[in-house]
Write a protein that binds this DNA or RNA. Structure first.
Length: 410
RNA sequence: CGGGCUGUGGUGUAACGGCAGCACGAGACGUUUGGGACGUUUUAGUCCCGGUUCGAAUCCGGGCAGCCCGACCA
């Protein structure tokens, strides 16, 4: 991608009403645009990050047998009534202009519509277990959207649902999901803490959250300084300075961002929608379910909160919009164009700053802001030595690499 | 949903109740190119409605919007 052709431009200063780091940097870099409070456009650079995250999620969820599907955002009233969730205030009613009474709510959760569908496809123990997921926009009328991508009224979520014969099988799968989640967050460059959390009306036991430590987080967890056992403060009886119930080390209270959660639902939904299967003896039983979420857009915001410096973002390699940020400082020299083409041919994702009117300093500042992992500079100085300068984001040292060897270094 | 703060070109800021100005950006032309370079030139603004006043960006009332704190967040 040539920066001279990019749809967006960077901002030198962040809008004054943005306080959170993720909002400031993502808006300045041209990753997102705020259309309303808690409602963002993912601009071309930002969408590439979302796609990277989605790819990681897909790979890992597919590995544990998840099948991807895509459910509607407009969810008709009848689907919410079985669980009494039509009137839940978090929903946005969607009113057709011709209808007198609205009959839809924009989907803020998809257990209801999925469970009613699943009854058409699951009828025998031979049809179990199953797991389906989607990556979709959720709409929640948050009374207070905040902190950039961390709490939006419209956001991207991966929601996975599993169907089982028994609680035993549910918890077998629950553990698979847990491990897949750790791989997802690890590949996304985040350290997360597996945290015990309170169950709700629709769960059969405690639930678990994946928490990334951050001072802007809305959650507070009590986490063991040694074994990382953690409980969410909303249900924990622990307090600062207590001994860890698992290993005896000191417990500390920390602020954190919930980037994922997993819920053992049991049969609450299958009872509401009469989702049953026949076991080997022909007995009708309710299907046992689990649901598992990752806020994809929140994940993006969290990564920025964790990986940044004063100048901009430091994208972890697997989620960076581009791997290489190539800067040419002497635009009259055609050599850089060729380097760009060669790098692309070698398979590297390159953002090429070929702009002619920007000064060197501005190009460096933009490279720092956008935050691709590898910066390559081509200038008169480097070309005299048939080389390019290479620098990793977040490191000060630079090195010269012969042009012939450049593609191999990436 | 309660509380606080704030609304001036695209962004950041200034203007006692008295001509809305500056910088950056963006557009044009030219000169530049190793940490946000320079010259000439163009462009673009007081959130909305009402009130007070000779006169309102400024004061008052109401709305709307944004941010922050809290409540809420199966």
């Amino acid at each position: 991608m040539k920066l001279s052709k990019l749809f967006t431009k960077t901002l030198r200063e962040a809008p004054k009403d943005e306080e959170s780091i993720n909002a400031k940097l993502l808006i300045r870099g041209g990753f997102i645009f705020k259309n309303s409070a808690g409602i963002y456009t993912f601009l071309p650079l930002g969408w590439r990050v979302i796609e990277k995250l989605a790819r990681i999620v897909r790979e890992e969820i597919n590995t544990i047998g998840g099948e991807e599907l895509f459910m509607p955002a407009l969810v008709e009233k009848k689907y919410w009534e079985a669980t009494g969730r039509w009137d839940v205030e978090i929903g946005f009613e969607a009113k057709g202009k011709k209808e007198k009474n609205s009959a839809f709510v924009l989907g803020w959760s998809h257990e209801d519509i999925l469970t009613s569908m699943a009854a058409k496809f699951i009828s025998s123990y031979k049809d179990l277990p199953r797991a389906v997921y989607q990556i979709q926009t959720k709409f929640r009328n948050e009374s207070r959207a905040k902190s950039g991508l961390l709490r939006g009224r419209e956001f991207l979520m991966k929601d996975l649902y599993s169907f089982h014969e028994s609680e035993n099988d549910l918890f077998r799968y629950y553990d698979l999901v847990k491990r897949a989640y750790f791989r997802i967050f690890n590949r996304s460059g985040l350290e997360v803490i597996y945290t015990l959390a309170a169950g709700g009306v629709f769960t059969i036991s405690d639930t678990h959250e994946f928490q990334a430590l951050s001072s802007v987080g809305e959650d507070k967890i009590f986490v063991c300084s040694k074994c990382h056992y953690a409980e969410n403060s909303e249900m924990s009886k622990l307090k600062d300075g207590d001994k860890c119930p698992k290993c005896g080390a000191e417990i500390q209270g920390k602020k954190s961002i919930e980037v994922g959660n997993i819920f053992p639902l049991g049969t609450k939904y299958s009872e509401a929608f009469d989702l049953k299967y026949s076991d080997k003896d022909g007995n009708q039983k309710h299907v046992v379910m689990g649901s598992y979420g990752i806020g994809i857009s929140r994940l993006m915001g969290t990564i920025v909160e964790v990986h940044n410096d004063g100048m901009g973002i430091l994208w972890p390699e697997d989620v960076a919009p581009f791997k290489v940020h190539l800067i040419v400082l002497d635009h009259r020299n055609q050599e850089a164009d060729k380097i760009y083409e060669d790098l692309e041919k070698s398979g590297a994702e390159v953002l090429y700053d070929d702009r002619v009117e920007q000064s060197a300093g501005e190009k460096f500042a933009d490279a720092d802001l956008i935050g691709c992992p590898i910066r390559i500079v081509v200038s008169k100085k480097t070309l005299e030595k048939d080389s390019a300068e290479i620098k990793l984001r977040g490191q000060q040292k630079t090195g010269l690499v012969k042009l012939i060897n450049l593609a191999d270094k990436i």
